[in-house]
Simulated scan of single mutants.
Amino acid sequence: MSENKTSIRKKHMEFTPMVPETTFQYADLSIKHIDAENTLAMVRRAIRMGYDAVAINIDLGDISDYYTELDMLWTPGSQNNVDGEPPKKKKKKQQRKDELADGIAGILKKKLIPPPHYVDVSQLNTSELEKRGKVFRQFSRITFTANEQVVINKVFIHPTILSYDIVAVRPGEPSVLDTLSRKTELFDIITIDHLEEERRKWLSVSKVMDRIRNDGVFYEIAYAESLMPATRKNTLFNGRVLIRSLKSKNIIFSSGAETMLDLRSPVDVMNMSLLWGVANNEARKMISGFPKNLLLQAECRGTGNGDVCSMKLSDAEKLAGNGEEEEQDGASEEKVVVGKEEEAEKVKAPPIEVRMNHSQYQALLQATKNANDMMKKIKASKAASSS
C-alpha cells in the first residue's frame, strides 16, 4: 500500500530552466481536458501557434462533490442497546445512526478525483519548435472551486491532488480566500474563470491578495470566456478589478480553451490584453515570464525546505583562504578548474552544516574575497583621507 502511495505522489514535472536550451518562449497553462482526441487536437494547434509549454487542465468544479477523505468516516462508538438506558441516551444513539446513514448516502453519491492526463508526444509534430531551438513541454493541472473552508484542509493532502504538477483554486467567498492565504505552499494558481457575479466579493480584498501574491502564488485570467457574448462583460470586469488590485504583478493569461476555436496565438493574446488595460510591455510577461516563474515555483512545491547556515566573517575568511593561518587537517580536498590557462587549485570542501553544492560553495568563496577586498580599499581610502 505504501509503495502505491509513493508512486502516486511522484510528480511528473522536471523543469529547471537555467540555460537557454531548457527555457521556453510562450506558455498556455490551461487547455481543458474533455476527451483524449479533443485534447490532442488542441495541443497540436497550440504548437502550430507557437506555444512550447502547455498545461492540460482537468476542471472538477465544486470539490465538495468528490471524495476528499476515504478513511476518516465517523462511526458511533457502540450500536448495542443496553437495558435500562435513559430515554435521552437512546435518542442520541438514534440520532447518531441517522447521521451515519445520511453520511454514507452522501459519500456514495460522490465521485473519484481523476488522475492527470498527458498526450502522447510521439503523435505531435515538434519540428518547428526544434528549428527555433525549443523543446516541447506538457504539464498536468487540476482546478476546483472551493466554497467551504473545511473541505480545503482535506483536499490538498489527497494523494491524487499531490500527483498533479499545477494546482489551481477558484475561491467562492472572501472567507475561503483568507484560509488559502495560510496554505500558499500547497497550491500555485488562483483563477477567476467561471467566477459568478455574486461571488466576486473577494476581488476587492487587496490586502489578503497581496499577501498571497507575495508568497509566490499567481492569479489567472482565462481569455476564452471573453470570446463568448454571454460571459464577456463579466470576464472583462473581473479581470480589470484583479489587475488594478495587483498592479499587473503575478498575473498570467491562459486560454481556458475547451475547443480549438478558443485558442489564440501569443501575439493575439498580447493584443487582447489591452481590453483589460494591460500595457504592451507587461503583456509579454503574462504569457512568458510569469508562467516560467510559476512552473519553477510549482516544481519546488512539496520538496523539503532549504537550509541556511550563518557563520562569522573570520570563519568565512578562513574558508576563503584569506587568513594568515591556513589549517590543513587532511580533510577531503577537491580540484577546481578556474580557467584553461590557470592551474587547478585545491580548496577545502564545505563543512556539513553548509547545505550547498560545490559550485554554490565556490561562488560563496568568491563573494567573500570580493567583500574583503572592498573593505581593504575602504580602510585604505579612509586612512589616506585622514592623513
Rank of each mutant, 00 (worst) to 15 (best):
L203P: 04
S204R: 14
K207F: 11
M209L: 15
M209D: 05
M209K: 10
D210I: 00
D210A: 09
D210Q: 12
R211G: 08
I212C: 01
R213D: 02
R213E: 07
N214I: 15
N214K: 15
G216V: 08
V217R: 00
V217P: 05
V217Q: 13
V217G: 06
F218S: 08
Y219S: 08
Y219E: 02
Y219A: 07
Y219T: 06
I221W: 01
A222M: 12
E225G: 09
E225W: 08
S226M: 15
M228H: 10
P229N: 10
P229G: 03
A230V: 15
T231Y: 07
T231H: 02
T231N: 06
K233M: 13
K233Y: 09
N234L: 12
N234M: 10
N234F: 02
T235I: 08
T235A: 12
F237W: 05
F237S: 11
F237V: 08
N238K: 09
G239F: 03
G239D: 07
G239I: 01
V241C: 09
L242Y: 11
I243M: 11
R244A: 12
K247A: 10
K247T: 14
K247E: 11
K247M: 14
S248Q: 07
K249S: 14
I251N: 04
I251R: 02
I251L: 11
I252S: 06
S254Y: 03
S255M: 13
S255N: 07
S255R: 00
S255D: 05
A257G: 09
A257Q: 03
E258I: 08
T259G: 15
M260K: 15
M260T: 15
M260I: 14
D262Y: 04
D262I: 05
L263P: 03
R264A: 14
R264E: 02
P266W: 02
P266S: 10
P266F: 13
P266C: 13
D268A: 13
V269E: 03
N271T: 09
N271H: 12
M272D: 05
L274K: 15
V278D: 00
V278K: 02
V278E: 00
A279Y: 11
A279M: 11
A279K: 14
A283C: 09
R284P: 00
I287T: 03
I287E: 07
I287N: 03
S288N: 13
S288T: 13
G289L: 11
F290K: 02
P291C: 08
K292T: 14
L294V: 07
L295F: 12
L295Q: 00
L295M: 14
L295A: 03
